[in-house]
Design a binder for these strands. Structure first.
Lengths: 244, 244
DNA sequence: TTGGGAACTATACGGCGTGAAGTTACGACA
DNA sequence: TGTCGTAACTTCACGCCGTATAGTTCCCAA
């Protein structure tokens, strides 16, 4: 609209974006130090030398801010596991799955508050919006796992039930992500990927929330054995380095 | 101390116990209707026609009340799965595991707030005490699962890594529960039971928190397949009724 | 130069957990 | 039966929270 700000953002818009980013950054800092409950508009504003109500100019409500934070953090998690996976060649299917899974746990242990923000009811009254941007990150994660399952599918399929799965039982967004990359993969493979997700999520979730601490002292070993068992059950050969 | 109250509680103690129970009952009702966040001392007191501070005569702090609630609810869950398991004869190892697992999911779906109370950060600032009574329920759950694994151990052991497990890496309370009933079981079996717990917990947790809803429409099928796969991987034969 | 609008503050309301002090009434003992 | 300790409960207070409404400041463009 203005003559100045077409090639780059106008001064107003730039300041606005900076403030918005600062709000998110401080929210993440507060979350990292004091847990997800510590994300309060008043605390953020205090940290910024502002009034709590000033934040309403950037986010309509606290839940909206939380939604954006979840999306950001979830994207960070997915990027981490995908980077670890892609550090290994396509030919090393077992290694890629192992890398994905280990990075999933390591990221979660390094960012327990982020894990709780994504997967728990971290923030008191928060209700996740149905189709929000966090769903995209979840689809990315599942599609990535499906890709790892796809690499094992020729051998894994014989151990899986084939019947009863139909594409229309899966979310369209997820389906389009998967079928774009693996047109010939049957829906049973996506179901298997979801089960794999559940297996990995289960142990990590128990560990993050402290439910393993009162039972067993070495959750890393437990997780490693679980992932190797998973790799084996998919008909893959575990990487040499992992057999030790 | 008093001449009256030796065979039964004194009037004071009885009233006290009744009030304490009423507080818990109302807290559970509030949780069932409004989610775990709805457990507030003020709301409970309002429901009882009292002042919030009156509750401090029964529970030193809100967290103490929550701890008691968690213990109660956890015990309820464990009792439910154990009852389902024990409805089948010892000879039907696969059926007992299936019953335990299915009841675990069904209880969780019927009491999602209870599940979140036990396994999530349902209550805003709550920090679980380390050795609290909830740990006992967790030990009972794990010991129960270990019993189910024990029934399959002769066939399952060949597929499990044996080395690297030692009793001193497990919690003493859990160890004593397990060894009292299964003196000859190796620690690797308890580790396997914890992994089984993780597998079951993972899918149920994803479902309860709504992370499956955006991916797949039939989480019951997913869970059923997972449990049957688990039974198979333990070297057990799935019950006839479950093969359909 | 001026007017529109974005950014922010001031004030207020109801809800929360919790501490300190004051009140009431029950129950044991002389 | 009268007295008194004490358990049970209320009242008041403080600081936290999200958020609605109204008012203020100040930049930027016409």
């Amino acid at each position: 609209m203005s003559g100045v700000g077409d090639q780059q953002l106008s001064r107003r818009a730039r300041l606005r974006a900076e403030t918005s980013a600062e709000i998110k950054a401080i929210a993440l800092k507060l979350m990292a130090t004091g847990g997800p409950d510590a994300i309060s508009l008043r605390a953020i504003a205090r940290e910024m030398g502002m009034t709590a109500n000033a934040i309403y100019g950037y986010y309509a409500t606290r839940d909206e801010l939380v939604t954006v934070l979840i999306s950001d953090v979830y994207t960070d998690l997915v990027s981490a596991v995908e980077a670890a996976r892609d550090a290994l060649p396509d030919s090393d299917a077992a290694g890629r799955l192992l890398a994905w899974a280990q990075t999933f746990r390591e990221w979660s242990l390094a960012n327990p508050e982020g894990f709780r923000l994504i997967y728990g009811d971290a923030v008191p009254g928060y209700q996740p919006p149905p189709g929000g941007p966090a769903a995209d990150a979840a689809h990315r994660a599942c599609a990535g796992l499906t890709g790892l399952v796809a690499a094992a599918w020729p051998r894994a399929r014989t151990r899986q039930p084939h019947d009863g799965y139909a594409w229309h039982d899966f979310d369209p967004g997820l389906v389009s992500l998967v079928r774009a990359e693996f047109p010939d993969l049957p829906p049973a493979a996506v179901a298997l990927a979801l089960r794999v997700w559940g297996r990995l999520h289960g142990l990590v979730s128990l560990e993050i929330y402290g439910h393993l601490r009162g039972q067993y002292h070495d959750p890393a070993r437990l997780y490693r054995v679980e992932v190797l068992d998973l790799i084996h059950s998919l008909g893959l050969t575990p990487p040499e380095a992992a057999r030790a």
